[in-house]
Structures are given as C-alpha cells and as structure tokens.
Design a binder for these strands. Structure first.
Length: 732
RNA sequence: GGGCGAUUAGCUCAGUUGGUUAGAGCGCCACGUUGACAUCGUGGAGGUCGGGGAUUCGAGCUCCUCAUCGCCCACCA
C-alpha cells in the first residue's frame, strides 16, 4: 500500500461506489451481481422555465427513469448534443417536480438519442454515469438516499422513508401534480450484493482506489508476449478483455476485520500521513492529533501478493529466489479477475516478472442438478461427508476425471461410488498379487528391466509402456481427466481382467512362475506410480506393502509420493504382441458369447475347434490361454479343415473359424438366426468398404495407408462372409 | 448489447491434429465356474452424435446458420 501510494498509484477520492446498505460497506464492481429484474420505466414531465421574452405555455421536457425517488436529487437534465429535438433547449432550465428546483439542461455525449425520450435526468449523487456528467458540467450533487437506504433531509418531505416507499410516494405525488406521463413495464439490470443479495445503492463516498491502467499494461503484455500462458486458451480472451477495459479498484472496506489502511488523518491540518510504521505525529504539520483511517483493505488486496508474500517478500529470501516465478497456477475460472489477473499485475509490478508461466483453470463443481452450490440454496455437498462415505481417493479421482479442462462438473454420487469401487479393486488386486508372489521372490524389478516371455507378458508390458507415453503426453497438454480415465481403463480392464487372470495359470507353471511374479509386481508398481496423483492414499499404502520386504537402501524411494515418475521405454513397445493378443482376446470373447447363446453351463468345459489358417501356429502356442479363459477342453487347432464339424455352433472372429461341437444342445433354428445376424453385419461392412474403394476419388486422394487399411478390411470381411455362408450351407 | 460454453446410449459424461463397426461409469437383461475382489466376474441389449446447410473421396470432430439450456462481461437512464 505504501509503495503504491508513494508511486501515485493509490489515491483517495470521492466517487460513486457500490454500497451495500445492509453491510454498510463499499464493495468492488466485481462483487456486484447484476440480475435482470422486472420493473417500471416511469415517464415524467419536467416543466420548462420560460425562455427570456417567451410568452404562453413554456411546456415540458420529458424524461424516463427507473428510479423515480432519485428525482428529488436531480441537478440537471442532459440531452445528446446532436439531438435536433432538443437543440433549442440546451442552456435553458427546467424545474424538478416536487422539489421545484431550477436545473440546467446540458448537452452530453453520454446520452443516447434513441433510448426513452432522449432526455435524461441527472442525479450525480446516485448514478455513476450521472456522476460523470456532473463532473463534466460542474453540477452539484445532492444525496437524497442515505447510507442506510433511507431518504435524507435533502429529500424534503420524504425524509426518513425507505427508498422503495419513497419511490411509491414520489410516483403518487407526480400523478397528483399531473406530471406523471405514463409507466411502462421494463426489465432493469439491478446490482445486488454478492454476499447478502441486498440491492446495491450507488452512492458518493470517500474511498481509497488503485489506479489500474498502468498495472494492467504489464499483465496484458505478459500474456500477449507468451510469458504467461492460459489453459484452456479461451479464457485468455476473457483475461485480456477485462484488462483492456480496466477500471480503478476500490480497495477500502468499512469493516472491522482485515488489514487496516496505513493512513493517518490529521485533525489539525487535515492532511494524510501514509507510513510503514505507525507515526506519532502528522508528517505535514507535526501535530499529534492524528487518527488512523478506520477502513480496512479489500481481502483481494492481500491475496494479489500471494505468489511472493508467502515466500518471505519483501525480504530477498532463498524461497523467493527458488520458487518465484512458479510454473503452474491452478485455480477456478471464476476468479480470473479477482485473483489471477491481479496476481499477474502485482507480480510484474513489484518483482518485474510474471508470477507463473501457465495458468490452468478448472471448472466449477455443481450439484447433481447443475446448480451452483450455495448456502442459501442448501445444496452444498460437504466434501468431508463424501470422503467419510466413499473415501478421499474416490472423491479426488472423480473430480479429476469427470470433466474436461475449464468445464463445470456436476458432482455425481454414482460416479463417486464407482470410483470407490475402483479403489477397492486396486486394493484387492494388489493384495492378490502380493499374496501370490511373496514367496516366489525376484523383488520388484523396474518395468524396463523385464524380459517378457509369453505373449501375454509381452502384451501387458507393451500396454503399460504405451500407456505411460500416452499419460505423459496428456499431462503435457493438461488433459488430466483423459489421462486418468486411461489409467483406470488399463488397470481394471487390461491388468486385472486379463493379465492377472492369465497369471493365475502361468504361476502354476514351474518355468513361468518367477518371471510371471516379476511382471505382476513390476506392472503393479508401474501402475501405482501413474495412479498416484489421482489416488494418493490407496496407492501409497499399497506401495508401502509392496516394498515392505525390500531393504530401505534398495528401494527407488522412501515413499511413492517421491518415487520417480515413469518414463516410457519405447524398446518394450511390441505391436506384434498387441496384435496377436488382441486376436486371442477376440477368440476368447467369441467362445464365451457362443457358450452363452447355447446356454452351456458355466462350469462345463466345452470342446472347441479352431480353423485358423496362417494364425494356427500362434493359436497353438497360446492354446492354454483359450482353454483357461474360455473354459474349454484342450482346443483342436487346424490350418484348414476339409469336413466341418457337425452338430456344432460356429462363429468367425478375426478370420478364425470357431466351432463348438454341442451334440444334443444345438438348436438349429436359433443357430441359423444367429448366423444370419452375423452375415448381415459382414455384408454391411463389405458394402461400406466397396463403396469407398469403388470411388476413384477415395483411392486417388486418401492417404495410401488409409486405402490399404480399407482394402484389408474388405478382404477380411469378405473372408468372414464366405466362411459364414459356407457354414449356413452346411447347416442345411 | 457483447462474448463464451454445452447439446453424443435411459442417466452422468469421454471422444484435441477428419479415416474401419462412436466409448466409459451407472442403470437394464441373462448367467455365475478354479476363493483377489458380489464395492465382483462373464456375455448381451441400447445411440440416424440438437435441427438445417456447406467444405471434403470421407464430418461426432472443420465452416455457416437456427434452436434450447447455462455462464461471464456491460454506466441506455
């Protein structure tokens, strides 16, 4: 405050400010909430004073107002200088109704010709625009509404009345005097106190202000020249628009809590002393009859110093040197003006450097109906209660993954419940993995140190690496929600549902026992690290258990929260394994589906015959997976089959023919129906692909790999169709 | 008055360089086999991506326009 005052950037002046009559306090423009409220536009005739030498009825000038009670404080009527209708009246006088005060008719460009009557009553004490007009034309201000929203002595007969009672009274009186022309329904943008909802009264008051224009320049430059990036980008425009149209900031508040304004008023000479230390005497006349200004500072006047005042500023501390400027400021978009823009301004002004390189803005959390949470509405969700019921990690994960940057989130209890289940899944899977692998040993190797053996091993390691790359990329783009969802997907659907299930089989195999245990643990460790920012508590707890047997010196870190963030190792990306495993997954799912259709009992092992062409050798190697996960007998795998199995259900998945011989269980009619559906699907695909490939423009203009992909898809679909049709023929 | 966002499955939402058959959670239907997890597993049903137009070989995604909802800014009394 003192520095800005000394630099001439803080001044004290009488201005129109937003006054909350309930709190008896001034508030800044940002704390006023404008609401369109139904009201009336009242047309009032002001008698004109006769011009010199004029004879007969001098007539009237008509104005429109939404606040008739302010008529009592009018000190002029203004018209637009270019308005032909009123040109002759400029410089003449009118009489304020009721008060019978003589006021000038002035010309001011602020008046819109096309609104109302084109003439406006001017009440400098109760309207910001009127105040400015008053300044330009040296008009007196007459305050007719007091700080308690009651009429003052200056309001004559209305003294003591509430502002709204006075409004009614004034209208009635105008009517009685025959000066009320008419009233119209009109929607009025009405300012309310953000905190208590009371209608704001614009009043002239002596307050402290900060000159903002010089400060805004730096904050604008920092954004425009790329020193400060705003994510998502669209908020940058909101930031610059505000700074470009900045108005001075009223920083004094008539409250008794807050930082007191370091200014002392002298009763002797009337001057002000602003000082860092409490002064004993007036700096101007030496009198000891000084009293400190009773006002305190707007809370944001402290907050805008936050990026450096928290680091020990104005001392030149080690913290300040190290942490200022910081990299990312994360906050809600609703306080871009209150806080972000002002921090940028103060940081640049006091330290010469923007306080953060990136501002990441998140959305607001709303209730399940999308309403803003508010105490008066009673729809505030208490995070403590949610955490008690579902856990902190579940809430945190939900908030982090429910939306997209800068967009509001409707908080859904269902979603939180689902993520509670996820935390539970992590716990259970980890418990199982640790329980199964504890005695096998092998420690917890880094993912990159693994030598995956089986197809499933290669697949899960590759998937984990790919995920790591993806998450890192998304973090770089501030796509935290998408990154979290992908980790969720990997952990639950790939690691738990597939790999852990497969590992149950591999752990039975003496040769695979140890490597499988190592992979289980390494991938778990890896996934925990990726997940830690989203679910710090469960992951940390599990991680501590995971490393419980590892000597302190051999651990990568004392705790997960400080463990190294994973980096993708491209050498372990294994497209071939991913493709091969996808085929196995497809076949297993198809067999399961067929079993369900045939209503085969879940416990029953079924026979299966796979006709796989070139993929036969792959399937032979991975037969045990199919056996285990699709609950089949040892599958019979052929490259080709001359005679197709009779009395069996069939399906084609990834080009592989799948037969389940189900003598006695086969319902030929239903099977035919099922085949028909599949055939239809295949035909649809073929039609689609043909249409594209028959279009010479597609072939010549699309990227070659896209065309090739389409050709492959067509070939695959045709192959599938041929197989399905052959099958239908066999069914007879 | 100016600007921004949203509109995708019954519900809540993803889908960011335009490219096979648009995904998830919840809900729904059916079934539950070897004890990590029923806060679970398996399979399934369900969407002409708000309307219209344009660009393109190709649009949920780009452009124009309209509609509905929401938000921000704003001194036409």
């Amino acid at each position: 405050f003192v520095r800005l005052y000394e630099e001439g950037l803080i001044y004290r002046a009488e201005r129109i400010i937003n006054w909350c009559p309930r709190f008896m306090n001034a508030i800044s423009d940002l704390e006023v909430e404008v609401e369109n409220t139904p009201g009336k536009l009242t047309y009032v005739r002001y008698p004109l004073e006769p011009a010199e030498g004029q004879k007969g009825e001098p007539g009237y000038i008509m104005v429109a107002t939404t606040r008739p009670e302010t008529i009592l404080g009018d000190t002029a009527i203004a018209v637009n200088p270019d308005d032909a209708r009123y040109k002759a009246l400029i410089g003449r006088y009118a009489i304020v109704p009721i008060m019978n005060r003589r006021i000038p008719i002035v010309a001011d460009a602020a008046v819109e010709k096309d609104f109302g009557t084109g003439a406006v009553k001017v009440t400098p004490a109760h309207d910001p625009t009127d105040f400015e007009i008053g300044q330009r034309h040296s008009l007196p201000s007459i305050q007719v509404i007091g700080f308690d929203a009651r009429m003052t002595e200056a309001a004559g007969a209305f003294v003591g009345q509430d502002r709204y009672d006075a409004r009614k009274g004034v209208v009635a009186e105008l009517e009685r005097l025959g000066l009320l022309d008419h009233e119209e329904d009109y929607t009025i943008p009405l300012g309310h106190c953000e905190r208590c909802g009371t209608v704001i009264e614009p009043l002239i008051s002596m307050q402290w202000f900060v000159k903002m224009a010089p400060l805004a320049t730096g904050a604008l430059g920092a954004y425009r020249y790329g020193q400060m990036r705003i994510v998502p980008e669209r908020f940058g425009k909101i930031y610059t628009d505000w700074l470009e149209n900045i108005r001075d900031w009223n920083i004094s508040r008539q409250l008794w809590w807050g930082h007191r304004i370091p200014a002392w008023h002298c009763a002797n000479c009337g001057q002000i002393t602003v000082a860092r230390e409490d002064p004993a005497v007036c700096a101007h006349c030496g009198s000891d009859r000084i009293t400190q200004d009773p006002d305190v500072l707007d809370t944001w006047f402290s907050s805008w110093l936050w990026p450096f005042s928290t680091l020990g500023w104005p001392e030149d501390t080690a913290d300040l040197r190290r942490y200022y400027p910081t990299s990312v400021m994360e906050t809600g978009y609703d306080i871009i003006f209150f806080w972000v823009a002002r921090m940028a301004m103060s940081g640049i002004h006091f330290l010469g450097v923007v306080p953060f390189n990136t501002v990441y803005l998140h959305g607001l959390i709303r209730d399940e109906q999308g309403r803003k949470m508010s105490k008066s509405l009673g729809n505030v969700i208490d995070p403590i209660e949610v955490m008690d019921e579902y856990g902190t990690d579940a809430l945190r994960f939900t908030l982090a993954t429910s939306g997209t940057p800068g967009n509001d989130i409707k908080l859904s209890m269902n979603r939180i419940m689902g993520n509670r289940n996820f935390a539970n899944k992590i716990w259970n899977a980890s418990r199982f993995v640790m329980g199964q692998t504890e005695e096998i040993g092998g420690g917890i190797p880094a993912l990159g140190a693994l030598q995956p053996k089986t197809l499933a091993d290669r697949w899960i390691v590759s998937r984990a690496q790919r995920l790591t790359g993806e998450v890192t990329r998304l973090f770089g783009e501030y796509q935290f929600g998408e990154a979290g969802r992908e980790i969720f997907e990997f952990f639950w659907s790939e690691y738990c549902d597939w790999y852990v299930e497969i590992a149950k089989g591999q752990l039975q195999d003496a040769k695979l026992r140890e490597p499988t245990a190592r992979i289980l643990r390494a991938v778990l460790d890896h996934a925990l690290r990726l997940l830690h920012p989203y679910m710090p508590f469960v992951t940390e707890e599990v991680w501590q258990h995971l490393y419980a047997e590892v000597p302190e010196a051999e651990r990568p870190a004392s705790a997960l929260i400080v463990a190294p963030w994973p980096v993708m190792d491209a050498r372990q990306l294994d497209a071939e394994a991913e493709e091969g495993f996808a085929l196995i997954q497809e076949i297993i799912t198809a067999i399961r589906d067929t079993r369900k259709h045939a209503e085969v009992e879940a416990a029953m092992r079924v026979q299966v015959i796979l006709v796989a062409g070139a993929r036969a050798s792959l399937l032979k190697r991975e037969a045990s997976l199919i056996e285990q996960l699709a609950r089949t007998e040892s599958p019979r795998i052929e490259r080709k089959l001359a005679t197709k199995p009779e009395q069996s259900m069939a399906q084609v998945a990834g080009g592989v023919e799948i037969y389940l011989p189900l003598a006695g269980l086969l319902d030929v009619a239903r099977e035919r129906e099922r085949l028909a559906t599949q055939i239809e699907t295949a035909r649809g695909q073929i039609e689609r692909s043909r249409k594209m490939l028959d279009n010479p423009n597609f072939v010549s203009r699309a990227r070659p790999d896209v065309v090739q992909k389409e050709r492959d898809a067509l070939a695959a679909a045709e192959d599938t169709l041929a197989k399905l049709e052959a099958r239908r023929g066999e069914l007879g």
